[in-house]
């Protein structure tokens, strides 16, 4: 009855296991739900609520705090153009306007073919190559209108498929293996370490006292 595909569900369960409390897996799970559906569907939200032992309202409320989560369907490519100070000084606003013309949709909307959603972003921390553009959170480093148009063409024609997976897929490198350190072992290990440390501190204090007496 899972909404998640079997592989996604399995990864979801692995994720939950990485955290001391299941709710902590919220953000990675939401990324995963978005990876499957391209956005956060009601079904995806409901499944995350179960996996994190919360409610749909809670999950939705949490997700809506974060810009990267989309509660409505978006294009296959979410194109973000930064207009924050560094990019502003380098023509970010103008590039955003240009992008809007190229994609034929206003900022915040999805192009007619459903392929692109255009966003104005805050600083993307790539300010040496301003104005900065990301597609599905991959830097495409196209700072001029022409380069932007060429990049859009490449996307349309699948030439960037390798670099830019469809929207929602964030981390393509999977974690290999879960936690390796057993909780009980840690407690024991820590107890020994703390005791040893206390003994050393004690010894050091005695040594210092001895020096003082001398």
């Amino acid at each position: 009855m899972s909404h998640f595909r079997a592989d996604i569900r399995q990864r979801a369960e692995e994720l939950v296991a990485l955290y001391p409390r299941q709710r902590s897996a919220m953000l990675p799970l939401l990324h995963l739900a978005q990876e499957q559906d391209g956005y956060l569907s009601d079904e995806g939200i409901a499944e995350v609520a179960v996996l994190t032992d919360t409610t749909p309202a809670d999950v939705r409320g949490t997700a809506s705090f974060y810009d990267m989560f989309h509660l409505e369907p978006v294009g296959r490519y979410v194109v973000g153009v930064c207009t924050n100070v560094a990019c502003l000084l380098a023509g970010g606003e103008e590039l955003l306007e240009h992008a809007s013309v190229t994609l034929g949709c206003p900022v915040g909307a999805t192009s007619e073919d459903g392929l692109f959603t255009l966003e104005e972003t805050e600083c993307l921390a790539d300010c040496n190559l301003a104005p900065c553009v990301q597609v599905n959170h991959r830097y495409v480093r196209t700072t001029t209108p022409d380069a932007f148009d060429a990049m859009i063409n490449d996307l349309r024609e699948g030439r960037l498929d390798h670099d830019v997976p469809s929207h929602g897929t964030l981390i393509r490198v999977k974690r290999q293996g879960g936690l390796r350190v057993a909780k009980d072992d840690v407690a024991a290990e820590r107890a020994v370490a703390y005791a040893a440390r206390a003994a050393r501190a004690e010894a050091a204090a005695q040594a210092a006292a001895a020096v003082e007496i001398k």
Binding site: D42, I45, T55, P56, A57, D58, V59, R60, G61, F65
Partner: peptide
């Protein structure tokens, strides 16, 4: 213990919201 309403959004667009699938 009925967390069927929660804050949604951020900044001055913050709002109280319920889930369309599970109302308050």
């Amino acid at each position: 213990g009925d967390t069927e309403i929660a804050f949604a959004g951020r900044g001055d667009l913050i709002e109280v919201a319920s889930s369309p699938t599970k109302p308050f």
